[in-house]
Structures are given as C-alpha cells and as structure tokens.
Design a protein around this nucleic acid. Structure first.
Lengths: 337, 337
DNA sequence: CTGTTAGCGCGTTCAA
DNA sequence: TTGAACGCGCTAACAG
C-alpha cells in the first residue's frame, strides 16, 4: 500500500481511503491511486484488514461428505445466502471420519469464522458446546442434543410415514426397513415414521425385516441381498437415505428382482430406472439457505439480547416414479420379473 | 494471549512459546499455561499469525459447479493432498456463471492463498495471467491457453476415440454426437476423438447427427429428442460428459427407445440402468490430487529456479454396462423392445 | 482534502 | 528460562 502511495504521490492512508470508496477524496487523486493500483497489480491484504477490523466476514460450514449430493447442495444453499450478505463461506469436510469433526471446528474458529453451520456427524455434541463459547452455531439436518441453539430439520418423521403409507396402501404388509445407524437422529425419526404408518394401517412390522446401522451404499447392498434371500422375504423396501436406496437398488438388480422401493432423498436418474419408486423429496439447498439465514440473523443481534433458539423445518413431499399398481403400462424400459 | 498469560502468571510471550511447542520452557510453566488455556477456552488467532508469519497456509480451488460429482470429487482430491501437507483449502464455486470467475480468484488472492487450482470455465484466461502475478496457478481438466503453467488433464482424445471405436466395432455407422460447447477444450478434444475413431473405421460421420453447445442435462435432453425423432435417426449415441449422458438417457426413456450409449464420465447407478452403456471412466479425485501435488511442488520451489511447466495426464478406461451385442442375456432388468 | 499516530494479535530478535 | 521491543498490512481517530 505504501508502494502504491508512493507511485501515486500520496500517503498509504489515502490509498486506503480510495480503496474503501471513502467520499472525502478528490477525483484527481482517486484516479492517480487507481492507476497506480492497476499498474502494480496491487490487491488489498484481507488478512491484515480482518485483523484491524476485528472481523473476517467468514462463516464456517462443516459437513461429512461433499461427494454426497445432499451435502454439496446444502453447501450451495449456504453459499448463496452468505454471498447475498457479503459473507464468505469456509468449508470443512470430515470425509466420514466423525472423530475429525472437533478438530475441523477448532480450525475454523482459529481462522476467526464469525459463525458456524454444522451437520453433526456423531451423537456427542460436547465439542459444539465448546464452539459456542466462541461463535454462534446453527445445526443442520440434526437437532441439538443438550445444546441451546438454532437448527434446520427436514420432516423426517412425516416423510417416512407418508412414503411407508403409500406402500401399505398398495397392500404391502412385509416391507423391509434398511436404515442408517439409529444413534443418528434421522435414522431414529425415519424408523419412527415407518413404524407409525404401520400402526395406522394395523400392520405389524416384521422385526426380521428391519435392518439398521447401514452407513453407505455397499453395506446397504449386502444387507438388502441378505434380506431378499430370506425364505419369507419382503414385498417392498424402505430405505432411509439416498446411499441406502442406491445400495438396495443394486441388490435388486443383481438378484434379478423387481420390488417397489420407498426411501428418503430423490436422486439423479431415479425417474428413468423403470422401478416403482416412492421417494421422499426435499430441497437440500433450502436447508442450507435457512441455516445461513438463522446464523446471519444471530450475527446481526450479536450485541444485544440473543434471540431465543429456533427450529425450522423444511417440508418434504412424496414423488413417485415408474410403474405402480394401478398404473397403465408405460412401455419404456418396463421392469422385468 | 495476554489474559492467558496473566492467569498463568507469565508474559504473553511465554504463552506463545508454549503453544508453539518451543523447547525452552520449563515443565512447570507449560502446565500452568495449558491449564489457563483450557480454562479460558483460548484459541490462537490464525489471522494474526498469518499476518506475522507472512503466509496463510491456504490454497484456493475454483470450480464451476460443486453439485456435479466431477467437481466435488476433484475438490476432495485436492483437500486430501493439501491436508497431508498441512495446508488448508479455500473453495470457490462460480455456480456456472463464467463471469464471476475473475472476481472469485481475486477474492482468494485477497485472502492470501498461497496458490490456486482452477478449472477454467471460459475460453479467456487473461484473469489467470493476472492471478499468476501473485501466486502460482495450476489448471485442472483444461490446458493453459497462452499461459505458462502446470496443468492436469484427462485423456480426452484417447478416451473419446476408444469409446466411439467400441460402438463402431459393433457395426454402428450412424452415431449421434451430443457435445458441450466446442470452445471448451474438453468439447473440442472429445469431438476430435469421436472423429478419429470414425476415420480409422472408414466410416463417415453424418453432420446432421452432430450437436454441440449443450450445457446441461436439460439442453441435452431436448437435443437428443430432436435427433432421435429424425427420420434418418442414429443407432447409437455418444455424449461428451455425465450431464449430457443423463439428458440423453432421459430422452431415450421418454421416447421409449433403447439405444447403445457411449460417453465420458461414469455416474451413479450407471450399472443398474440395464442400458448398453460404454463409459469413459477416470478418477476425478486423482485429478485433484495431482493438481495439488503440482501446486505444492511449485510452492516448495518458491525461492529459486521455478520448475518448467508440466502437463500431467490422468488415464481413462472404458467400462461397459448392460447388455451388448454378443452378450448372453442377463435376465435382470433387460432393455425392452 | 490529506497525513500522522497508534494498535489489531502474534512471533522474531535480542537482552536479561 | 523468560520478558521487552518491534513490526507484519491495514484503518479508526484525530490532526492539519
């Protein structure tokens, strides 16, 4: 900045003012300064600015797996709203290693993020309490456990119940449940919805068809194959997320079986599989947007009464693809049997 | 740090030393300092450190669309290598707005990234030359145009030729080409490969079946439908990337037609579509890893002879899914017609 | 309209 | 083994 000033024959202070669009600078010097900036290719050092200004204008986002479209969409939603408010987003990815989450959060705090949005990977949230000593924290997709803070959830229970009810309404009474670990909020809620739909239909779920603790498509595929090979197998499947659905679909394909499948999360090409699918769809971007809005609102009330913690729910809707009982034949890529 | 020092009855300087694992500190004071740190929940300010140390330990990555698995995998690859070397990654996403790329790059430079990895979105690279005045820049997936710098490419030409050759070998002589804008390197190279395979097979491609400038699945779907509805339609399709393949598959599905499809990029569920697919697969993570390695290598030679610019190529391999002419019937979800 | 002073939080250098 | 002074690049507050 000194160099720019020298070239423009002004002090560094004046350069600073020009770059900040401070009104009290004569047009002549403005132009000289800009010319010097261009000539030297000068760029302001945001690190030094943050230090001086006492704020970085950055918020942190912590997710478990960027390669999962759910998280990348969520990240895009956060980014969108952050950008609108002149904030930048720093992204951290735990790469499915739960134990790395505390370290990543500390790292973001060390880098002076002004707030955090976290999709907590495990069930322990003690490290989030520590983080809250430094900056506001908003949770996404999972509720706080013993923490007083905002969160954005999807209608896990409702969505699971509705999709399960679709299968039951078609007469299925032996529906397999393929779920993620029950220690996760989403896993537990979605099982609860599955169960509730059964109760309402007066159908008793068979525990032998309930499988939990699946963590990715590969484990889901193995579990699904196991269940499909049982003598008293299911007539339909319910999967609690997109990874599990994909594993189950692969199992069906390999086993050469076509069964109706219901599950959480829509996914690419779901509409062209030719399978009878009943998917609980929702806007992952919107979760990110809402989380960002909650966080930014909290940041704007930093010096004052902090607002009471809020819980926002993003709606789900059931989408059906492929042939279902009662449909007319479609003619394109029909399921074999 | 002062506060911590006061609580531990030492100067801030000693706290700094303890936190840096400086050897010259007595065990007694170490423990007092750590105790004070824990009690106050103190975290070192990385912003201030960077200023003093003259380096942030961050590298920047610029991509166009995080929701595309190609880019999110690439980002994970970069992140992996960066972490191994004690560097952090700042991610910027242009959200398909080419014109935002220069601004995002400037932003990363302002935040003092020590190097950049860019997947250039447009054909103009002037802004990259400006960026190179500040930090080393490595290009991914597209070569430099009038720039002297490292890049990591995939075997665009070779992959396209090989996949096309598979279709030709099966007797197809009317293969539609659905491509991204030819101004993009990948678009041009893949068309060249498509063409070369035809020449080698002594088959003349029909220009009426060549369609370029497709930017996403929706435009690809429309283009594919148009070509499929021609009286002299194709007997197979070639798509230059995953988005276009997905659009084409949707078009086939809606039209109720099953045709062999070849294309760049493998994608989720490609193996269970039951369509005859010939996909050019490669490791997107590896592109990110290699790009990060090139960048880090360049960073390590910062004060000395900069190495000559290098070009690394990531190999492709052709993977085939579903029934192909000559296969035995599979029995599971076979294509109709 | 412009320049000077001081300090953001930290670490290097030197002195005790 | 520990502390004091100084400065990284920038800008708020106060001169002039």
């Amino acid at each position: 900045m000194h160099d720019v000033g020298r070239l423009a024959q002004v002090s560094a202070m004046t350069v600073s003012r020009v770059l900040k669009n401070d009104p009290g600078v004569s047009e002549a010097t403005r132009e000289r300064v800009f010319a010097a900036v261009d000539r030297l290719g000068y760029r302001r050092n945001e690190t030094a600015r943050s230090l001086r200004l006492g704020g970085t204008g950055m918020i942190g986002l912590v997710v478990t797996n960027l390669a999962n479209p759910f998280y990348s969409r969520l990240a895009l939603g956060v980014q969108e709203v952050a950008t609108e408010h002149g904030l930048r987003m720093m992204l951290s990815n735990t790469a499915e290693q739960v134990e790395r989450e505390p370290g990543l959060i500390d790292g973001l705090i060390d880098h002076q993020v002004e707030g955090l949005i976290v999709v907590p990977a495990g069930s322990r949230q003690q490290h989030l309490a520590s983080a809250m000593r430094h900056v506001p924290v908003v949770l996404a997709a999972r509720p706080p456990a013993g923490l007083d803070t905002d969160c954005v959830l999807v209608e896990d229970f409702h969505g699971a119940r509705e999709a399960t009810a679709c299968l039951l309404a078609e007469g299925h009474t032996r529906i397999a449940f393929l779920g993620n670990p029950p220690a996760l909020y989403t896993g537990a809620e979605r099982l609860r919805g599955f169960w509730a739909a059964h109760e309402e239909a007066g159908v008793e779920p068979d525990n032998a068809l309930i499988c939990q603790g699946l963590v990715d498509a590969a484990t889901a595929e193995r579990a699904a194959l196991g269940i499909l090979n049982r003598p008293d197998g299911p007539t339909a499947l319910f999967c609690t997320n997109n990874r599990i659905s994909q594993g189950a679909i692969r199992a069906l394909y390999k086993a050469g079986i076509t069964l109706p499948l219901a599950g959480f999360d829509d996914f690419e090409l779901s509409d062209v599989l030719g399978l009878p699918l009943t998917l609980v769809s929702y806007d992952a971007d919107e979760i990110g947007r809402q989380a960002a809005r909650l966080l930014i609102d909290r940041l704007s009330h930093r010096d004052g009464e902090p607002p009471a913690s809020r819980r926002i729910t993003v709606p789900t809707r059931v989408i059906r693809y492929g042939p279902h009982s009662g449909d007319r034949p479609r003619g394109a890529l029909p399921p074999s049997v």
